[in-house]
């Protein structure tokens, strides 16, 4: 790889621009694709940097699927290596569990943002290397605009903070929405979210009680159950299937929500009905 190409790849990374590195395995020739959005949009569809058009199409597909692939173009074997921006985790509530969750998420490669308007909570001393936003969650979430590569977790227990965040998360394509709170808390929250216009099907996207059922007790254990559930959903594991929640969100409903969820098709259905995650 030439230093120039490495620099351009790292520039794209810094700008959070999805790109793919195409390498001809016979001689190491390389292209960064898409290279320049302006030149790539030429009428003939050919990339501006001289790469074969078929390579650009393969690069786009690899970026969309977020998976590397091998293709044959013009008689040569090419390796297409997508470099997507990191998955994002938006944590609402700079609370004790967040302090345990954030380092785990960083270790897993998430770009982490912690949102909490309470200045005593959201300090760098408590969280270190993450983006801290000391604003109300609705303002912060609107600015961050969660997409299909974003997970949202609310941890404050405070409806004034959690509800607006969940409201916005449900209106977004976030691939994971988790809300800390007991079943009773969750049921009350459902009532409030319903008043904001969310129906049962929509609310079935919220994981609550949050996290996989590992009988978590301590803050790090609860954090572990949450991050494990996020990974399970992301990877399409059976464990990541929506649980049957309180208030009659039955199996059929959960299944429907699972089918509509972004990401890969899930594995086996049929979760135990009582899957209390993290107690709270």
């Amino acid at each position: 790889m030439t230093p120039e190409l490495l620099a351009r790849l790292r520039e794209a990374q810094a700008a959070k621009r999805p790109v793919a590195l195409a390498t001809r395995l016979t001689d190491g020739a390389q292209f960064l694709l898409p290279d320049d959005p302006a030149s790539d949009a030429r009428p003939d569809g050919a990339p501006g940097n001289g790469a074969p058009a078929a390579l650009l199409a393969a690069a786009r597909a690899a970026i969309d699927e977020d998976a590397a692939r091998n293709v044959e173009v013009e008689g040569a074997a090419w390796f297409i290596h997508p470099h997507n921006p990191p998955l994002r985790l938006l944590v609402v509530g700079a609370v004790h569990i967040a302090q345990a969750l954030v380092p785990m998420a960083l270790q897993l490669g998430f770009a982490v943002t912690v949102i909490d308007p309470r200045r005593a909570f959201a300090t760098e001393e408590r969280f270190g290397r993450v983006t801290m936003i000391q604003e109300w969650p609705d303002d912060a979430m609107a600015a961050l605009s969660p997409d299909s590569r974003t997970a949202v977790v609310t941890l404050t227990h405070d409806p004034k903070l959690d509800d607006p965040a969940l409201d916005l998360a449900l209106r977004s394509a976030a691939f994971y929405i988790g809300a800390l709170g007991s079943r009773r808390t969750a049921e009350k929250r459902r009532g409030r979210l319903r008043e904001l216009g969310h129906d049962d099907e929509s609310m079935a996207r919220i994981r609550g009680p949050v996290g996989l059922n590992i009988a978590a007790v301590t803050a790090p254990e609860i954090a572990l159950s949450i991050i494990a559930e996020i990974v399970a959903v992301r990877r399409g594991a059976a464990l990541g299937q929506p649980k049957t929640g309180p208030g009659g969100a039955g199996a059929a409903k959960a299944e429907a929500a699972g089918g509509a969820a972004p990401g890969r098709p899930g594995g086996a259905a049929g979760q135990p009905a009582d899957r209390a995650g993290a107690p709270a």
Binding site: P3, L6, A14, N84, P85, G109
Partner: peptide
């Protein structure tokens, strides 16, 4: 070794950043 900017979905470790630093 720290996630920064973008690391792809494969790994949290930013090998390219390390390689660039060494170079």
């Amino acid at each position: 070794g720290m996630p920064d900017g973008m690391t792809g979905s494969v790994d949290a470790e930013d090998v390219l950043a390390t390689a660039a630093g060494w170079r």
